[in-house]
């Protein structure tokens, strides 16, 4: 799937650049894209080790267990793995960091969670139901205080930059629910691995 999306994006850009006459820009993008990927990796190189280190402390000191216990009822509703597993702990840490708007912290927790989910996945190259659910929760993004957007609105003279916060909460939660419903429906048709972990 990723291979097709990847190839499709490149083919689509070639066709569109031919139509719009932006071939020089496209050619530039091939080189600058690699550079921006590496600068992203460098910034990840700074944040991921820091937060995986902190995650390791939080795990051995029992903070992870405490947070998982608080999120347990919701967790049971959405995931198939046991709420006491290590993967569940990493998932809960990822979700809490995302809600606080700490994207830099959320990503390392998320990658850790994927690794632990993969340990319980019977397949080497096919995503398990729980992995998909987890990625969908991340792509839906629920944030309690949307600082970045509020900053942009404040910069351009909004009377009250945070007045859209209710709209954002309603939209995020509806989007998350739609993602989870789509997930439950679509997984009946996709691959059909009966892997109840």
């Amino acid at each position: 799937m990723i291979s097709y999306v990847w190839g499709g994006m490149m083919l689509l850009s070639l066709i569109c650049a031919a139509i719009t006459g932006r071939m020089p820009e496209l050619s530039n993008a091939v080189f600058s894209g690699g550079e921006s990927a590496i600068s992203l990796c460098i910034s990840l190189l700074a944040t991921i080790p820091l937060w995986s280190g902190l995650m390791n402390i939080a795990e051995s000191s029992g903070i992870v267990r405490l947070i998982s216990r608080m999120l347990r009822p919701l967790f049971r509703l959405i995931f198939r793995i046991s709420p006491d597993s290590k993967a569940a702990g990493a998932i809960c840490m990822n979700v809490s960091a995302n809600m606080l708007g700490l994207a830099n912290a959320a990503t390392p927790f998320g990658i850790k969670a994927m690794g632990l989910l993969q340990d319980e996945n019977p397949s080497d190259d096919t995503a398990s139901d729980d992995m998909i659910t987890f990625v969908l929760i991340n792509t839906a993004s629920v944030q309690i205080i949307p600082t970045t957007v509020a900053q942009i609105r404040a910069k351009y003279g909004s009377a009250s930059p945070m007045d859209i916060i209710c709209c954002i909460w309603i939209t995020s939660i509806c989007t998350l629910i739609i993602a989870l419903i789509a997930n439950v429906i679509l997984r009946q048709f996709s691959g059909g691995r009966k892997c109840h972990i």
Binding site: I2, G115, T126, M131, I132
Partner: peptide
Amino acid sequence: YFSSVRIKRIRHTLIA
């Protein structure tokens, strides 16, 4: 997330 665990078949993730 998927490439960090070398998953190639992501099933319905992208559509959902």
